[in-house]
Amino acid sequence: MKRNSDKLIKITEVCLRDGSHAIAHQFTEEHVRSVSRALDQAGMHYIEVSHGDGLGGSTLQYGRSLTDEMKLIEAAVEECKQATVAVLLIPGIGTVDELKQAKNLGAGLVRVATHVTEADVSAQHISLARELGMESLGFLMMAHSAPVEKLVEQAKLMESYGAEAVYITDSAGALLPDQVRERVRALRQSLDIEIGFHAHNNLSLAVANTLVAIEEGATRIDGSVRCLGAGAGNAQTEVLVSVLDRMGVNVGIDIYKMMDLAEDIVAPILHRPQEINKGSLVLGYAGVYSSFLLHAERAGKRFGIDPRDILIELGRRKAVGGQEDMILDVAAELAGSR
């Protein structure tokens, strides 16, 4: 595989964070221990553990965690001999207090996430993480929704705050391969730091898009085992590392062990298979934040309307990540107008 970067590829497994959405935040400590242990033994580089909406996300707005995320972080840290435990922080939801707590429990990396146009709210958290001695990365969500120049401008802001990498985060799973290429290329030409890519599989493009991103020079790559992530999940990690291996890219992760843990440990945790159903397909098609899926399905049931209509209306109103409260509001409005 020809790559526009000579740096090592570092994989972050997100099923214990992004997957929280898919199982309504019902992870138990035992889930986290068994998954982390197996991932660590397979050679995974980073394992992200947090509420789906990041530190402090256990709320009525997003759904409460069954288990306190700090307990889960602590458990993951205890199980990992070589992997680094990562956390997600969305300013406006979590604060520096939770970040310090996670760091004290042994989290070594934080991704500070903002909407793609709002990078300046992350300055405080990105620089604090550096001061705490954590790896500190920026995560620009809903990256499909802004023009490339805007993405570059915002990524440069995160770089100026001290971010060691900036992710193009395709939260809606809406980016097409050419759009991924264009974005990674633009960042590569303007940033001195690493570029990351986080996919959602709503249009069945997660692995393909990730390969395009790697070719263009992205080196921080996200995946979720068994697609355990919001919407239709992310780039399926065990598939991604197998494909990379076939393409001659060795990332130092044991493929057989990944396949085993996907089948034996992660699959039983799923509430339903992570397939692309009409709901998740519409997320990608309409460019809607992937974690809205289960909320829209519940609201659809409650108000007797098609969840797709809710999701498409949310896309039309340009809802951003975190606006789960708009789902009930829009559903009630749609129901009232019938």
């Binding site: 909407h115 975190g322 409260d325």
Partner: peptide, 18 residues
């Protein structure tokens, strides 16, 4: 929780209380 939404034309302030 606080959320910033960049939509144009700008959205009115909305608040949800649980």
């Amino acid at each position: 929780l606080i959320i910033l939404n960049p939509a144009e034309p700008p959205i009115l302030m909305r608040d949800t209380v649980y």
